[in-house]
Write a protein that binds this DNA or RNA. Structure first.
Lengths: 339, 339
DNA sequence: ATTATCCTTGACAGCGCTGTCCATTCAACA
DNA sequence: TGTTGAATGGACAGCGCTGTCAAGGATAAT
């Protein structure tokens, strides 16, 4: 075990006070270039690393960012973590992950954690982005937060998102361009703000193409494989069936794919299937899924950035926010409509 | 923002010294029951939460446990985190996640982090469980660690694992019991210790059933969907093909499934497919995958427990370790061999 | 040259907690 | 009755760092 070396060692080594060492560590102004270099050299020579507990106890920053998630799709969570951590690393921050069971006592899970940890900020993933108790607890404890893809109430706090409506609109148009006129749609989990926006995009595209939106072509799902599977069974059950199904996330699209497989429907010759998210699962199937690439990691990275730079919402101003680009990923699960 | 309330407030409220408060907080002995109750009451009344930075700066414990992972299957990582966090919560610990890019400079990623964070311990997931640089860095910095499913060198440090050989043996026997005599096998990533053990289990079962292990029935994979897909193309390419394929993880099994779908092979009537891990993906397919349920969350939980209770490896003694139970999950992707 | 101003540096006091060490109390024993 | 030791509680010194404040030195303005 290597001996713990502290700021005092560096100060002694470079012949300055610990405060000056602290200055160069924190990139504070008003340090002579020469002094700065000497300190840097000592830091390197001694292989010194500041102790994070001491820093956060003494100062304002904790160098800790939290990610809250609930009942997540594993791929989504992992992407969020990877994206956030990539940013955190550059600034010397670390990531704390905290699953929140929103069916349990949320207050009890969140409040103690915020009090003990005093993180610099937390990233909220859907559906927590819209959970009133979580938001209130955060505000009461004075912990900054950024919401990923929140639903309503976008004025309340900073957020990062993508244009779900536009993406669904584009995907629907892709299908229409392929000649599909009878398209089924599976709505996502009602607690996720994105669900309504994606549905809206679908409806708008159909309207703009003068295509009818038949009520019996729209099914409610829950973002899960099973809900997609069951919705597909209803959609494909009769003889009168759509030529394409657009599921508002990949898991549900895979459910549709499973039903198609079981029914021996050729995808995409007899049925086109589109998903949304571009999770790893989209490629873990054959044919591979046409879907929308959500910039999940980028959104999480942007959220981390905002937190580390100390986002502030001015009184009466709209909160800082960012809308990132999506990408239509056309793979093999969509094709020309059968004539 | 609620005012920060400290141990001094609790001490004043309950009429004892801060040290006594500290004693009851840390469940130290030698505090009268009466005093303990008074302090507890004050803690509750004031809603006091000890500050983790102060605790770790002053004391020996950091209340922080790390999880290192590399290039992970999302489902695996999420399971590990969930399992570890469940245990951590009961003791007031928190989880720090750190992805390690083992193709990059590992030392540079690990050493600074260990020095700044001074975690109480870290959980290593495969293939990091066997990464010599990571292990050395941990030991040099004096940070305890528990390895999940390590390969060799089980004497070096504490670990938690499952009996991969036995599980693969049992799965192979399940297939043999179904009448399969010509079984293909896809080996996992060579950096993962479990790969060799699973392969061994397959070979042992075949041997014990007096079945030949044909060299051209065993393919090397990398635990990825794509590698499973490609291995399956080779295995199923000719007219002489196995009646079952046992892939040593689910992702690869899904690759096999995709090839079977594309070739219009009926699963399981014409081809039985077995996986390993029981990741979420195993159910996100049709037919659902017969697989081995790895106790991933339980292994991570056990690892966290060992870390929090301060595992110690006595000189000359074998390291503390635990072997958890697996479970054969028979679903629809395996069935009777075609006659 | 003199004063005002800025830049650079350091001394020092905590941040909130635990570990060490000492003081007191009290019961049990000689 | 005195003695001993366990049980109980408190005082105090840090842990390693940042924030505050002030001092000294260099530079600019007069």
């Amino acid at each position: 075990m290597s001996a713990k070396i502290t700021i005092h060692d560096v100060a002694r080594e470079s012949g300055v006070s610990i405060k000056t060492v602290s200055r160069v560590l924190n990139r504070e102004p008003n340090v002579k270039a020469d002094t700065r270099d000497r300190v840097q050299a000592a830091v390197t020579a001694l292989n010194y690393r500041p102790n994070i507990s001491a820093r956060s106890l003494a100062g304002a920053k904790a160098y800790l960012i939290g990610v809250f998630f609930d009942n997540p799709s594993p791929g989504y969570v992992t992407d969020v973590q990877l994206g956030a951590i990539a940013q955190c690393r550059r600034e010397g921050y670390h990531l704390i992950v905290e699953p929140i069971d929103s069916t349990g006592d949320v207050e009890e899970q969140v409040a103690p954690m915020l009090a003990t940890l005093r993180m610099d900020g937390v990233i909220l993933t859907p559906p927590l982005s819209d959970h009133p108790v979580v938001l209130s607890a955060l505000e009461r404890e004075g912990v900054a937060y950024v919401r990923i893809a929140p639903g309503d109430d976008v004025e309340r706090a900073p957020w990062v998102s993508m244009d779900d409506r536009k993406a669904a609109y584009d995907m629907t148009n892709h299908l229409i361009g392929l000649g599909h006129r009878d398209i089924g749609f599976i709505i996502g989990h009602p607690d996720h703000g994105a669900s309504a926006r994606r549905h809206q995009g679908f409806v708008d595209a159909m309207r703009d193409a003068d295509l009818p939106v038949r009520q019996d072509r729209v099914e409610q799902g829950w973002f899960s494989f099973r809900s997609g599977f069951e919705a597909a069974e209803r959609l494909l059950g009769g003889t009168d069936r759509p030529t394409a199904i657009f599921a508002s996330n990949d898991d549900m699209a895979l459910g549709v794919m499973a039903v198609a497989n079981r029914m021996r429907l050729d995808v995409p010759a007899q049925l086109s299937i589109a998903g949304f998210d571009d999770t790893p699962g989209a490629r873990i199937t054959w044919p591979q899924l046409t879907t929308v690439r959500q910039p999940i990691a980028a959104m999480a990275g942007a959220a981390a950035d905002m937190l580390m730079s100390g986002v502030h919402q001015e009184e009466g101003e709209p909160p800082p926010s960012r809308l990132l680009d999506f990408e239509l990923v056309v793979r093999e699960s969509t094709g020309k409509a059968p004539n």
